[in-house]
Design a protein around this nucleic acid. Sequence first.
DNA 1: GATTAGAATAGGTTAGACCATTAGGGGGCG
DNA 2: CGCCCCCTAATGGTCTAACCTATTCTAATC
Lengths: 253, 253
Amino acid sequence: MFDSPMSGSIRIPKTAEVLAGRVRKAIIRGELKAGDKLPSEAQLITDFEVSRPTIREAIRILESEGMISVSRGARGGAKVNALTNDMVTKAAGVALQSRGATLKDIYIARSVIEPPAARLAAENRPAEAAAALRKQLEIERTIGGQHALAAAIAEFHRVLLDECGNIALGVVGKALQDVVELHMQLSLRANARTLDTSDRRTRFGLRSQEKLIELIEAGDAAGAEAHWVAHMEAAGKVWLEGVESTSIIDVLD
Amino acid sequence: MFDSPMSGSIRIPKTAEVLAGRVRKAIIRGELKAGDKLPSEAQLITDFEVSRPTIREAIRILESEGMISVSRGARGGAKVNALTNDMVTKAAGVALQSRGATLKDIYIARSVIEPPAARLAAENRPAEAAAALRKQLEIERTIGGQHALAAAIAEFHRVLLDECGNIALGVVGKALQDVVELHMQLSLRANARTLDTSDRRTRFGLRSQEKLIELIEAGDAAGAEAHWVAHMEAAGKVWLEGVESTSIIDVLD
DNA sequence: GATTAGAATAGGTTAGACCATTAGGGGGCG
DNA sequence: CGCCCCCTAATGGTCTAACCTATTCTAATC
């Protein structure tokens, strides 16, 4: 039983998918920039010579991918979104939840990714990275409120991943960070608990961040990595006992 | 300037999105398993009391997320797909390409993630991991053809990430691996080049994998990690000069 | 019994209508 | 004169009713 040269299941492309694909390609290639407006549905109908439901299916596809958002009313329509990590976060959230990943799992993965990010930052762009991190640290110091502080600290981690100079590491690291944050938001909304971030521990954390910045600024790659390993371990001990570390991640509404 | 309790732009949910959300939730929660068939469009119309275009928009959303696939004709309809990493791969591919990530970027990120995966495998489940890896190594040894061998080696890396016992690390590591593989497939199809994997280097790689398995089996976590760091570095030197290491990742069509 | 033509099923696409929401302009009132 | 409200136009959201097309099953025919 040989496959004939013509074998292989052929996939008949649907009009809506083709349409969505064209727009997606234009967005990824940068031909359509964030903020640009797509033509109105009526215009698209005449441009592409397809019916309205077909157009709308294409729009739903792109919307579900987070590439456009649609608003109603006069001057409404589909606008191109800035390409964010949202899609990666959503996809990772689904994959992690369906496999039963726990907060501890994700924290361990982050502990694997972030210290090398600190090393790369110190190696490749110490000055810029230190400046960006210091700016975020200032925000943390002046901010009020437990939730706002927690968000600012999360942002510090994101800045570190951004400034490491490796796009791939940044994308996956931030996706994990975002999944955790999403889970926390939903879990807090459900349980209305309060975060018990003691002041003493917070100050210790900020001092540790300050030290990281100094090591990066000095170009001490090995030192920055080692310090951040220690930081993540220490912070993880505190944080994971605060949350139910074994609870399965939940990113559903 | 305080936000009033009523501030914040409200999001009017669209019927199709609500519908898609319900099905998505059921799939993620495991209430709908892979292979299950959704009711026919006609049935959904009567079940949910919405019109066909709306149903179809919901179906397009879920299809674009890779959660279902639809076939035409008698006995056709929407079937639930197995939850794979495809969504994460696609999303990561888009994010990486739009940010101009290079193959080298991604390789570096993989070099960050895989050695700790080897360490975790040796720490947490040496016997199972060694068995699974050895099985894959056998496949590599008996396989013929350059492309098939390259695919088998890629699979070895995936098995390692699966067997490390950390779901989050596995998900993001495999996503990066998959993005690279997707790019290579498209690039090969476009250029019809041939892979020049010399036999000598291939055999060296397989011996290195064998050594990793032995270290993991012995529970030598530090040794496994260190060995895999060296392996990734050595393999990277060869591989990155074979491909255009600075070429920007491309995952379009 | 194998082949093939038709019937049944179910998704793919189109057309047209009407409803709901929003921005902006014009008229009335202070 | 200026402010507010309502009206209107633009645009997406939803529905109904068809017809087309692909796929499978069945039954008639050779």
